[in-house]
Design a protein around this nucleic acid. Structure first.
Length: 699
DNA sequence: TGGGGTCCT
DNA sequence: AGGACCC
């Protein structure tokens, strides 16, 4: 679960004594003109939240008796995380069960292979944070970045009366006497917000965690781990050199992975300082321009990447690993099992997947062990509809032949094979919504839609008083939230939230009005030849050659049926024949895109999609001048918009965002650049900028 | 070394 | 489709 082993723990002892818990600041000491609103590109205030041993905490909430015992969360033969009782006995993350039991014989194990509860709790945390401020970016299940610059600015305007002010929590490598109030007031306010949010996470969800407060994501993340369970630390700009310098190796720098570290090491670089001092030109030679600059920046603690609201997931997948799987029957059963749960999850999400992918990992004694292979195909829309509609069994039965077809594209089952992992994945997730009605105008949404979107999980936190900030309460999930419309759409450094709703699994995206769907699409992927009429009478002697009749009879009825279906029989018979898939793919491509296009055009200002890039941008700016950081389509009245219920607003924003690839440009001028990072992909235009992680994407 | 995710090439 | 990265 957590591979970043305690980056800063080694330094902890060194610093601990020099930290103070609360550093008094005096506002009387001249706020100074330097930090007043006139200073142009004020630093951001970025928070990083990191829940303590997340899976273990979730299990301890589910079963409080586990709080007092050493607890390990097990996936296969690994302890992926453990509670602090267990850590006192020397356990660490990602330790083998054998080693762990040896160190701690009384260790209590809970199987953590099913992520459902962790995922749900994870989204509750993100939702909670979003309810205070929309700029929240998830990193895994247990971390969130948040850009609270605007909240800080608002508090700054209000808080001038108070005479003294303190940092909450620790301040990295800093004594109280050294802290200058006027310089770091904004970070100090950030530390208060962080403390309040951690408190909210604890009181509302029962979870503890750490927070880091700094001027960018890199630094916030690095500093958050300084004091480990349930504490927070602020990094002042003057200590950036320290914190970077004290990292024990380049691998500790988020963004420098295994491969990059190896290449750097080949250049003779092992410490962060090595990289800081290494000539950029030499670095460029090895990595290319933008990545080289990026690496240098990271080493220096410089990171301009925005906090990009994560919104709903881009894909849902389910996987299982095992020592050995070598029969088609086992593969079929495993895929069936994985698909069943995935389809259910997909249904709960409410969106409709357009792409299915099957991934395998083959056993290999050689050291090359970790690579995976995958094949993907479009999902015929009638199957997608069944998934979204909740006809899960039907959907699974129809997906199974698709999956087996993909499987046989990778594995020749007439030869022995040895798999160690199977993964099924839905991607290209599409929100279904009304499309048939009025033309080209966003208002067609406003009237239509008996919406099914509901809150399933958020036991709407009844009080509005939990607001960290009077201005920021608009974003709550409770029903009372029509106030303070101005806030929710303001973004500072980035685009508006991509859909938060489905994301926020508590919401359903479902829409009772659904696109009129062409049904004549020939669904199954392997329909060549066989006559459906025959199959019902089929008995086991008609089984494909590579199915053992005895084994067959042991299979669940449903699977037997499926094996006898024309689709599956054809899959087996035509192992190396990819023509079937191609036919279906072509058919699907003829139908699906037009569906999409009409949906898109319908919601756009007429004709915009055909405009040259610069025109589009110009137009958007003109039509929505008062806040260029909001991404309203040009014909949406912000006032009308702001009066809509929260969930409607969020869904609309998600819609618009998904359309940006059509609206927006691959290259744009600086002011909007941060808005389009994801959209570049969809356009298929190369991002000539950096090749490094989105995580440290530039703004 | 799990069971997830992201984006880029 | 694979590879890098994150947890």
């Amino acid at each position: 679960m957590d591979n970043s082993e305690d980056e800063l723990e080694e330094n902890e002892a060194v610093w601990k004594n020099s930290f103070v818990d609360s550093v008094p600041l005096s506002l009387a000491a001249a706020p100074g003109p330097s930090l007043s609103k006139t200073s142009p590109p004020a630093d951001r205030v970025i928070l990083h939240f990191d829940l303590d041993c997340f899976y273990a905490q979730v299990e301890m909430i589910r079963n409080p008796a586990l709080r007092e015992v050493p607890l390990g969360i097990q996936q296969k033969y690994i302890i992926v995380t453990c509670n602090y009782v267990a850590r006192e006995q020397g356990l660490t993350k990602l330790m083998s069960v054998t080693d762990a039991k040896e160190k701690c014989p009384q260790l209590v194990l809970v199987n953590g292979e099913d992520l459902t509860h962790y995922r749900e709790m994870s989204y509750k945390v993100t939702e909670l944070l979003i309810s205070y401020c929309p700029l929240v970016e998830r990193l895994g299940f247990d971390e969130n970045f948040m850009d609270v610059t605007e909240m800080v600015e608002r508090r700054l305007a209000q808080t001038l009366e108070s005479n003294t002010f303190s940092f909450k929590g620790h301040v990295y490598n800093q004594r109280s006497a050294e802290v200058k109030a006027s310089d770091y007031l904004r970070l100090a306010l950030g530390s208060h917000i962080a403390a309040e949010l951690r408190e909210a996470i604890y009181t509302k969800l029962g979870l503890t965690g750490c927070a880091g407060i700094a001027t960018n994501k890199l630094l916030a993340k690095l500093v958050s781990g300084t004091f480990k369970p349930n504490q927070q630390t602020t990094l002042l700009p003057e200590n950036i050199r320290d914190i970077m310098g004290h990292l024990s190796s380049l691998r500790k720098v988020p963004g420098v992975g295994h491969q990059t570290a190896k290449r750097l090491q080949a250049l003779g670089l092992v410490t962060v300082k090595d990289l800081q001092l290494f000539p950029l030109t030499d670095l460029v030679r090895e990595f290319g321009g933008p990545p080289a600059q990026r690496l240098k920046n990271l080493a220096l603690g410089v990171d301009d990447s925005p906090v990009t609201p994560t919104g709903a997931p881009q894909s849902l997948s389910d996987e299982d690993s095992f020592k050995k799987m070598s029969s088609t029957k086992d593969v079929l059963e495993k895929i069936h099992q994985l698909l069943s749960s995935l389809v259910e999850r997909m249904h709960r999400d409410g969106r409709q997947p357009q792409t299915f992918r099957l991934t395998i990992r083959r056993f290999s004694a050689t050291n090359k062990w970790f690579s995976r292979e995958s094949r993907q195909c479009p999902i015929p829309s009638h199957i997608g509809q069944k998934i979204a509609a909740g006809s899960s069994d039907d959907a699974v039965v129809q997906l199974l032949p698709l999956a087996m077809k993909l499987f046989h594209k990778m594995v020749d089952s007439s030869i022995t094979f040895h798999l160690t992992l199977i993964n099924v994945c839905f991607s290209n997730l599409q929100t279904r919504r009304a499309v048939s009605g009025g033309k080209g105008c966003i208002t067609s949404f406003f009237r239509a839609s008996p919406r099914k979107i509901q809150i399933l999980s958020s036991q709407s936190q009844g009080d509005s008083s939990h607001s960290v900030d009077g201005h920021c309460t608009d974003h709550q999930f409770s029903t009372h939230g029509m106030a303070a419309q101005h806030l929710s759409l303001k973004t500072v450094t980035t685009k508006s939230p991509r859909s938060s709703e489905a994301a926020l699994h508590g919401f359903k995206w479902k829409q009772s009005t659904v696109v009129a769907e062409e049904e004549n699409q020939k669904a199954s992927c392997c329909t060549t030849g066989s006559d459906p009429g025959e199959t019902n009478d089929t008995v086991t002697h008609q089984l494909p050659a590579n199915i053992d009749p005895k084994v067959f009879k042991l299979l669940p009825e449903e699977i037997q049926k499926e094996l006898l279906s024309p689709a599956y029989v054809n899959c087996l018979l035509s192992t190396s024949d990819s023509q079937n898939i191609k036919d279906v793919t072509a058919a699907a491509n003829e139908l699906e895109p037009s569906d999409r296009v009409s949906a898109v055009n319908h919601q756009q200002p007429a004709g915009t999609s055909a405009f040259p890039v610069e025109n589009v941008l110009e137009e958007e700016k003109l039509s929505f001048p008062q806040s260029s950081d909001c991404e309203f389509p040009g014909n949406v009245d912000p006032k009308v918009f702001s009066e809509l219920p929260l969930d409607v607003r969020m869904e609309l924003m998600s819609e618009w965002k998904q359309q940006k690839p059509v609206l927006k440009a691959p290259f744009s001028r600086k002011p909007v650049r941060s808005l389009i990072t994801k959209e570049r992909n969809a356009l298929g235009k190369g991002s000539q900028t950096n090749s490094l992680l989105k995580y440290f994407k530039r703004s």
